[in-house]
Design a protein around this nucleic acid. Structure first.
Lengths: 220, 220
DNA sequence: TCGATAAATACATACTAGCGGTATGTATAG
DNA sequence: CTATACATACCGCTAGTATGTATTTATCGA
């Protein structure tokens, strides 16, 4: 294969193939050769020209997938002037979460948490970042400042809700539960969040229902 | 090295070395040779005589470490006749949790969740098992039966509390937070649990404080 | 503005050390 | 004598590297 005038296209192809494989087969279970085999004609040399290690490929692929999702979710907070409480509800409304759902529906990560352990670790770490430096904690603090939220432990509440939302409500690395069970989880999470001053709104139920439908339709 | 009259000792040595290495260096970061090097004189042949794969070694090492802990925690529920609510509090009291703490204090798993991803995955999976088939959900249901607990969504509450306790209150794969932050987490979790009908008791604060002290003393 | 040349880049090819795992040999316990 | 607990020797594959080659792009005098 000759030299490509637009190497970003090559990089994109590599990351697309890599993400798909890392999701379905896991990090360990995916070899560089597996990735190369999906890039017709390309060789390992090309891959190692653009990335210096397997780990870097994984991180780049993950970032590439997550960045637009995070951006979209953040953008949901920008329109109009909302109170902190309104923004919080917005964060868990369907229109904020749907792009993320659709990404995972395309990727279909392995339901075995051990196989998906590296993705799980990223989601775990991401939950803390999301609450601390990301959008959740800032929104809560904004709500406290404007009087729309009364929360005594904003940081802790943000972390707990983030963790449960990402690793429990989104059962990425677990077998898909029946719909009523998923809704029960959402209801339960909403109750727990309310106890520490966070009103996630009724929309979280609709969001959960929508998630379930998307994944069920994708033959999860 | 000659043939050992008591091969269980050999197995134990292998698992001890393996657990320590898997904790500190991660699963990927530990080679069979690394393990062999810690078993003076022994060779790879011995290891593969007793175990058929690296994965089996990991699982055996993990099980070996967790079994007595789970047993101890379960045994805390056996003495005297307690209501479900009392048993629930007991589950999060210091005397139930301390052995687990001390194990991890000895092992010192890597604070990087990616490096520790396989252990994280086990803890994640374990949280669901603990609530579903383990002791938590049965205790809650016992409490509902004897009228000492009023919980509308026992399964969901158990899962959520289990997850938060194992992956958030025990910051195994995260840098150790200041003591007041840890206590704030415990307080927050107790509030959230109370909202779905689970009274973890004041003891969860003492437990958390004790965890912090142990790990701080271990130079975490 | 234009070609000629030099430098940088996008790959391919060929190779290595180390990995997980296996096949087989050997000595000891029962 | 047999079964087992090891040691030895080996294999295919992996992540990663060193190097070669062709093509693009930057440089520059006219």
């Amino acid at each position: 294969m000759g030299r490509n005038k637009y190497p970003e296209e090559t990089v994109a192809k590599i990351l697309d193939a890599a993400l798909k494989l890392f999701c379905t087969q896991g990090y360990e279970g995916t070899s560089i050769q597996d990735i190369v085999d999906r890039l017709d004609g390309m060789t390992k040399g090309a891959v190692y020209h653009h990335f210096k290690s397997k780990e870097e490929i994984f991180n780049a692929a993950f970032d590439r997938a997550m960045t637009p999702i995070v951006e979209h979710r953040r953008s949901m907070l920008g329109v109009g002037n909302m109170t902190g409480a309104q923004k919080l509800k917005r964060l868990y409304a369907p229109e904020s979460v749907v792009p993320q759902i659709e990404l995972w529906a395309r990727m279909r990560p392995a339901a075995d948490p051990v196989k998906s352990s590296r993705l799980l670790a990223m989601q775990y770490q991401g939950s803390f970042n999301e609450s601390a430096d990301g959008y959740l904690l800032p929104v809560i603090e904004e709500g406290i400042a404007d009087g729309s939220i009364a929360c005594e432990c904003p940081r802790e509440a943000a972390e707990a809700v983030s963790l449960l939302a990402n690793l429990w409500l989104l059962p990425l690395f677990r077998p898909l539960e029946p719909k009523d069970r998923m809704l029960a989880r959402a209801q339960c999470l909403a109750q727990m969040a309310a106890a520490v001053g966070l009103d996630l709104g009724e929309e979280v139920l609709q969001t959960t229902a929508q998630i379930w439908d998307v994944w069920d339709r994708a033959g999860w």
